[in-house]
Design a protein around this nucleic acid. Structure first.
Lengths: 218, 218
DNA sequence: ATGACGACTGAATAAGCGTTCATTCATTGG
DNA sequence: CCAATGAATGAACGCTTATTCAGTCGTCAT
């Protein structure tokens, strides 16, 4: 409760450039949502997490909703940037690309519990907010397009005529989301390492000649 | 918006037995959460969906939170009851049990979009509400225990010494959750039939001698 | 038919929260 | 060192919403 690590930078100066304050507030929002949930995240909890006053949010963002939207966009951009790096690998070597994708999805910086909490909080509401919808849909599409292309290439080059790339892509995508959920709500029985192992063994089942069953890690 | 089908029973009588009213309100809550999201579900939206007055919720439930908790419990019980039926099948025949499980998870009555919306709304908050946590954890455990036991039996009887039952159970569970998410937020690209096919092809990859790849359905 | 019971109503209340804005104060250029 | 600037504050305002409760009206036993 009290000894929470510092996500936000402690400001030495009383004033700071707008861009710096905006990021500070976005990080504070992530922390507040992770600590209290989206329903109990108020302007006050965000301001407190940032160590600033209440009025600051409306000074730097149009509204509370604007702050939440920017927070979601921040996470989506972070994910898509990481995705592009993996896509570059996949363009050269499909197998390495899929491995990079799994590696990415369960990297600490991408799926920390704080960030997962925010993702799921927004997923619960995305149907009802056109803006959330758009941001999430774009992120989903980056992922799906990329995995589908890589799988198609591997099916063709690797000789898997009976494997449907679209089906595998949807399966891997769904499996990843489900593993994220487990990481968030059942950390005692699911670790990033274990999740990675499950995802890789899925790929090993689908593409047995290109992925070996990952060794059992106790 | 207007031509919404009737989930709740239209009361002919002005008064009704408590148990009937409670269920009517729970169904109205599901509908309200599915229509407006959890954040915008108020006593007023629930009462309106039920065709009753505002005061009715506090008359039949301790509080709004009590109503939400009972709604979650209602869905969890429904799921667990269906689960037990599949477990009975699995006790006799592991392969039939897993098929029953997949069939169950993507049955219209279990994963209607209304109900999925409610599940995900609560999953976003379950970390922060001990009661939600408990109800969800029990549901998860029913599922996991059952699938794990069936997988273990199939691995032993079917001759899959290298397959780890716990890993497959976690994988199937995560895959199912992820497919549910797709059904909820991307209905245009995911159908219950397609989800079922993806889940079954996962099982076919893991237990190739006991599940055949489901035929391509266009 | 009638009176008593209690299910139901909905207006009133109070608490919580987002937003505004007059004021304060650090920073910077002259 | 002194203005001028504008970033930051936080109290006040008004709106939304959960909860209460006194009154209304069906229902049912007698």
């Amino acid at each position: 409760m009290s000894g929470r690590r510092q996500l936000a930078v402690v400001p030495k100066r009383r004033t700071a450039p707008a861009e710096e304050r905006r990021e500070q507030l976005i990080l504070a929002t992530i922390r507040s949502v992770a600590d209290h949930g989206l329903a109990d995240t108020t302007i006050a909890t965000v301001a407190q997490a940032a160590g600033l006053s209440q009025g600051i949010v409306n000074l730097h963002f149009r509204s509370k909703d604007g702050l939440l939207t920017e927070t979601l966009r921040y996470l989506a951009d972070e994910y898509r940037n990481a995705c592009e790096a993996a896509a570059a690998v996949g363009a050269v070597d499909p197998v390495a690309g899929l491995k990079a994708m799994v590696e990415l999805d369960f990297r600490r910086t991408i799926c920390s519990r704080d960030k997962l909490a925010v993702w799921f909080a927004f997923w619960g509401e995305r149907r009802f907010r056109p803006t959330y919808r758009r941001i999430c849909a774009e992120r989903d599409r980056s992922y799906d397009d990329m995995v589908r292309v890589i799988c198609a290439k591997l099916c063709e080059q690797g000789g898997y005529p009976d494997v449907e790339p679209a089906l595998v892509a949807d399966g891997l995508s769904a499996l990843t989301d489900g593993l994220w959920l487990d990481l968030l709500v059942r950390p005692e029985s699911m670790s990033r390492e274990r999740a990675k192992r499950i995802a890789l063994s899925y790929l090993a089942d689908v593409f047995p000649r290109h992925f070996s069953q990952p060794a059992q890690v106790d």
